[in-house]
């Protein structure tokens, strides 16, 4: 394996984490990783080898993901998902350790894909604002607004989930 491929291989764990945050469902997320790798191999010459392939790979994945989301929403599958997406019929079981992890993943899936991506890239993957803006192909101001709105959305969703659980407990 040449050095370029080795460098790409080393990014796979992070790509998987990023994909799982974007798409949640394990199979869909891993397909996204596969698509990204395949696309990267085709476009290997676009990567300036003096830098880490990380940003380049994250850019590819983000664009594949957004393309996918657009197609999905064309098919209106989104509105078929029940509010509590963890209870969606046919959704493969996710292996998460705790209710807290389930809640946060549900909340994350409930917010707009562009905001979700911004939160993950900056908050989880640790890219700087400048890097994140370049990955997402947006100006810094737009990035900041996606982050602040994304965090607000996430907080509101988590609060909703807490409320629902409390109601269930009371009903018992």
């Amino acid at each position: 394996m040449d050095d370029r491929k080795k460098a790409i291989l080393a990014e796979i764990p992070r790509l998987r984490r990023y994909a799982r945050g974007l798409a949640r469902d394990q199979d869909r997320a891993d397909d996204l990783v596969q698509d990204t790798l395949e696309r990267a191999l085709i476009k290997l010459d676009n990567w300036r080898t003096e830098e880490s392939p990380r940003r380049w790979l994250f850019t590819i994945m983000y664009h594949l993901f957004i393309d996918q989301m657009r197609r999905t929403s064309h098919r209106a599958e989104q509105e078929m998902l029940p509010l509590d997406s963890s209870e969606a019929i046919g959704e493969p079981a996710v292996q998460l350790d705790s209710v807290a992890a389930l809640d946060i993943m549900d909340a994350l899936q409930a917010i707009a894909p562009e905001r979700r991506a911004a939160l993950l890239i900056v908050g989880v993957e640790g890219f700087s604002y400048a890097e994140a803006a370049s990955i997402l192909g947006i100006p810094a101001g737009t990035l900041m607004s996606r982050i602040s709105r994304g965090r607000e959305d996430l907080r509101a969703r988590l609060d909703d989930a807490d409320r629902r659980r409390n109601i269930r407990v009371v009903e018992r």
Partner: peptide, 12 residues
Amino acid sequence: DRDRLRAANAHL
């Protein structure tokens, strides 16, 4: 919230 987000898929 960010910590929870980080923890959720850290195993990957």
